[in-house]
């Protein structure tokens, strides 16, 4: 009995520490956003929704919210259009190039945001591409920055459904490339695309460094306004953070729900061959 308790106590303690470490900052942020004052006592002195009111009625709120939404959605669309056909083509026609593509897709992890931003400014600040300090350039930079998040789940989906033989089967039945991609490949890798889209959306909505360096105050985003408030009033900044969390989590839930629905629809209620694979990627 004692041995049994010991066996369960150790992992229990480890999990407890992990949850404490992960959740404390979030819980503290939530608590701070509804606290009247919390700098002289252990617990908040009182509760209020004033900081949310201040956040929502701020003249910049709608603008930065819209800007970040536009940036996130544009990046998701651009990266789907760029990465899905590329990954499909490489998996189908040049499988030897896959390790190279895997490497390229992880490069953004190795390059700090500041370096990427400065490099892009230098590159695009001269003719013919006079894109420096425009939102278009920011989206272009974001596509590079989030490439691993989109490429990995899509690549895993492609590997899970034996794309080559499905393509050949569709072609032998007379289907063109476009039809094969639309009716056979896309429906079968949809969970991967949705997972990637979710990761990209959540990452870009909260991105600060690259946005500040590339466009700065010319195109103010939600995280920029959040940072602005951290210098003025941490409680309003906390309210902004909570709104940001809520958006990211809601998006996650909606997209996961769509993915589950899509998987159920495509596999007739049974286990979808790609389902386990792609949702597993969300965490890595």
């Amino acid at each position: 009995m004692a041995a049994m308790n010991k066996r369960t106590a150790v992992p229990g303690f480890a999990i407890g520490c992990f949850l404490f470490y992960m959740l404390l900052p979030i819980v503290a942020t939530y608590a701070f956003s509804v606290a009247t004052r919390w700098d002289r006592s252990i617990l908040p002195e009182g509760l209020t929704l004033d900081w949310y009111k201040a956040a929502f009625t701020d003249q910049w709120f709608i603008i930065v919210f819209k800007n970040s939404l536009v940036l996130s959605i544009s990046t998701v669309i651009a990266s789907i259009l760029l990465i899905v056909p590329t990954a499909y083509w490489v998996h189908l026609r040049v499988p030897k190039a896959r390790p190279l593509l895997d490497l390229i897709s992880t490069l953004p992890f190795a390059i700090p945001g500041v370096v990427l931003a400065l490099g892009l400014i230098r590159l695009y600040a001269r003719p013919p591409l006079m894109l420096a300090r425009t939102p278009v350039m920011l989206v272009a930079a974001y596509v590079i920055f989030t490439m691993p998040f989109m490429y990995r789940p899509v690549a895993n989906s492609l590997e899970a459904v034996n794309i080559r033989v499905l393509t050949e089967a569709a072609q032998s039945l007379g289907a063109s490339w476009g039809r094969t991609l639309r009716q056979i490949i896309l429906p079968n890798i949809l969970p991967g695309i949705l997972s990637g889209g979710l990761l990209v959306f959540a990452t870009i909505f909260g991105e600060f460094t690259i946005a500040t360096f590339l466009v700065g105050a010319r195109y103010k985003t939600f995280p920029m306004q959040l940072v602005y408030f951290t210098r003025r009033d941490g409680r309003i900044a906390s309210a902004y953070s909570v709104i940001s969390f809520t958006i990211a989590w809601t998006t996650s839930l909606v997209i996961l729900w769509i993915a589950a629905w899509g998987a159920k629809r495509t596999s007739g209620g049974g286990k979808h061959p790609t389902k386990g694979h792609t949702t597993g990627v969300v965490g890595d």
């Binding site: 050949e168 089967a169 072609q171 289907a175 063109s176 056979i184 596999s267």
Partner: peptide, 22 residues
């Protein structure tokens, strides 16, 4: 002639059925 214009029916070892269809 590309495969989609040859009119050849093909059966694969791995079945190659489209999982998104009945």
């Amino acid at each position: 002639v590309p495969p989609n214009r040859r009119g050849m029916g093909m059966v694969f070892q791995s079945y190659a059925l489209f999982p998104n269809m009945t």
